[in-house]
Design a protein around this nucleic acid. Sequence first.
DNA 1: CGTGGTTTTGAGCCCCTTCAACCACCGTGG
DNA 2: CCACGGTGGTTGAAGGGGCTCAAAACCACG
Lengths: 224, 224
Amino acid sequence: MLTEIATTETLRSPVPAALPSNRRAPETFIPAGALMSFPRNSEIFAEGEVAGYVYKVVSGVVRISKLLPDGRRQISAFHLPGDMFGFEIGDIHHCSAEAVVPTKVVAFKWQGLIGAGASTSLVRELLTRTMIGLRHTQDHLLLLGRKNALERLAAFLLEMADRSGSAEVLDLAMPRHDIADYLGLTLETVSRMFAELKEMGPIKLESARRVRLLDRDKLKAMAA
Amino acid sequence: MLTEIATTETLRSPVPAALPSNRRAPETFIPAGALMSFPRNSEIFAEGEVAGYVYKVVSGVVRISKLLPDGRRQISAFHLPGDMFGFEIGDIHHCSAEAVVPTKVVAFKWQGLIGAGASTSLVRELLTRTMIGLRHTQDHLLLLGRKNALERLAAFLLEMADRSGSAEVLDLAMPRHDIADYLGLTLETVSRMFAELKEMGPIKLESARRVRLLDRDKLKAMAA
DNA sequence: CGTGGTTTTGAGCCCCTTCAACCACCGTGG
DNA sequence: CCACGGTGGTTGAAGGGGCTCAAAACCACG
């Protein structure tokens, strides 16, 4: 049954198999394909927790982050519907995942996906997804290591626009603080760079979270 | 034959199947397990080149990097003997790889590893290696996004010590400039942080490239 | 309308960069 | 033996980009 559920096709369009719950108990058994709901800012899993499931976003937005002992935070990714997260090598999560907005995810038992008897095509799909994550993370290293604040924000807006349908108006789910922790800046600097991009032309702020992209080519040029 | 060569065991201890060549021609066929040698600072593959092979370091050190149009560089990883690199999703390299010192690598045809007929255990091993790379890259995001110069260098020295046998004296293969591009700093700042770590006690510089680790716990505390 | 969370704006400062000079090491050749 | 050039590393001084601290403005929601 695990193999029957854990197919590539299932990963693409999972069928909810259980009712939503706000927070799973650490040791609760979750059937492959269980749908779970998380309110805004709630924890999906925490760094150091026992792993064992991978998750696929159905709706909402998830942030993946790591903390330093003194509270400094780095967000490594935002996951949108269709994305998967929670892959771990050992059985311990080394990142935490939280819902940025009310979010629904489907949980799959990791052992069911890659354990003995797993199909090669499924493992190959997980490999592809992991490699996509690795490529994104490497691109992000270049941003954090070598780009200035304006370039970082321009790149962020382009990334979000590309990933959420390339509409004319971009709706950002996350607050300035999350953007800052994703871009390795402070929220004040993010706010100032928004003002500067507005000033320079390529964007217009319908509201703090709604950005109209007026000149995508100019943005690309500014993202370095 | 590909499946026979491309086993997990082969990946761990490959047998050279061809003679060294300084630089492969772009379209030359390379049998799985071909041993290749690269002189110091030579290019193994470049961003944008056609991919098709994955590589395993036999001896030497390889740096993986990305460039911005204006020349700013970010090194995402140093690979030591036993490490593999060159995984790509499409057929285009999106990073470049260069030998830091005279280096020998073994090349494997990617299609031979994951193509039709590949064993699940082999694909699973590639998945594990990719996930290890992803974890390392995420840790590095935290370093680049949130740590100061001193913390970065301390973390770098600890990483290198851990990976190269945890000896008392650490031999760094790479120049200051490469360390800087790995840590998102300038070479001058790296040099100053070396001086500061020396000043503060936890290290001693036998020479510019030879570092004696006097107090690893203190280093760990400084790496935040 | 208050109230709390979020965002913007301002002022001063500091860490790291930039630019520049100097030094240490090393193989080469007179 | 030492002058020489080249690479790589260190050190100094000055400037700036982003941070810190602070306060005001905005906005959704009771």
